[in-house]
């Protein structure tokens, strides 16, 4: 589906690109940058290049963040949005309450087992192209709570991530830097080497067959299994 392959008609891109994993695979320019408009311009490569650059610049310069508070980092995130640090100066300062209107999700806090499916749901509701900024150590790796029984070891277990910002919590300046880096990437049309962890269906086969697994295997329709937290194997 790369841009130098002119096509006569639009055939298969009207599906909502919510299947995050599929959207990240494939080579060449990241599929996230595709739009139906771009497909329509596909037959004229010269204009397309210019138009692509323009669109990337637009995307990088007008980002709508999702208003998404989880834990401690969200307090620093609020400070980044408000006076003094004012993320709006970097074209990214208006948080949207609805995921349907947002481009960027900042994940500001610890993801626990109860919240992870909800977060994926919110992520899936965001329209493509969408980007994720991990704020703080918790959403990068579990941070200081990594060894907790209930803590998911990083948002990347659940959703793909573009930028990691270390810190506990990162200072507002660090968040501004991270967002600026993301904008730079988008403007250059780069896609990050996204690691997508297999959060989708996993077979029971590699689990030890004890009573819990047997019970769950009996209870759960394998079709509906989205996530498996295996504390031993997690990075």
């Amino acid at each position: 589906m790369s841009s130098d392959q002119p096509r006569d008609s639009i055939t298969d891109t009207s599906d909502p690109l919510t299947s995050t994993r599929d959207a990240r695979m494939g080579d060449g320019v990241d599929d996230r940058f595709n739009s139906r408009l771009r497909e329509a311009f596909g037959s004229t490569p010269f204009i397309l290049t210019k138009f692509d650059k323009f669109m990337n610049w637009v995307r990088g310069s007008s980002m709508f963040m999702l208003q998404f508070g989880i834990a401690c980092c969200s307090i620093e995130m609020m400070h980044t949005y408000s006076v003094k640090h004012d993320l709006d100066r970097f074209h990214a300062g208006v948080p949207r309450a609805s995921p349907r209107q947002a481009d960027v999700m900042i994940v500001p806090g610890t993801i626990v087992s109860k919240f992870a499916p909800r977060m994926k749901r919110v992520y899936d509701q965001m329209p493509e192209p969408k980007f994720v900024v991990n704020m703080g150590n918790c959403s990068t790796s579990g941070g200081p709570f990594q060894e907790g029984y209930n803590v998911v070891k990083g948002a990347e277990e659940v959703i793909p991530v573009d930028i990691h910002i270390p810190g506990c919590p990162p200072r507002p300046e660090a968040l501004v830097y991270g967002v600026a880096k993301l904008q730079e990437r988008i403007a250059n049309g780069e896609s990050s080497p996204v690691t997508v962890k297999p959060y989708e269906l996993e077979e029971f086969g590699d689990l030890e067959r004890d009573e819990i697994v047997d019970k769950l295997a009996a209870d759960i329709d394998e079709e509906s299994l989205v996530m498996r937290y295996n504390w031993a194997d997690s990075p």
Binding site: S113, K114, A116, P117, R118, K120, R121, Y149, N150, L207, D210, I212, V213, L216, I220, S224, L225, V226, M227, R228, Y229, N230, W231, A232
Partner: peptide, 20 residues
Amino acid sequence: HPLGLDYNQNKPQIVTFDEH
């Protein structure tokens, strides 16, 4: 019950699509 004495943290816990 995770703060009990015989809780094994290495056992996998499963969250299903119903949660989602």
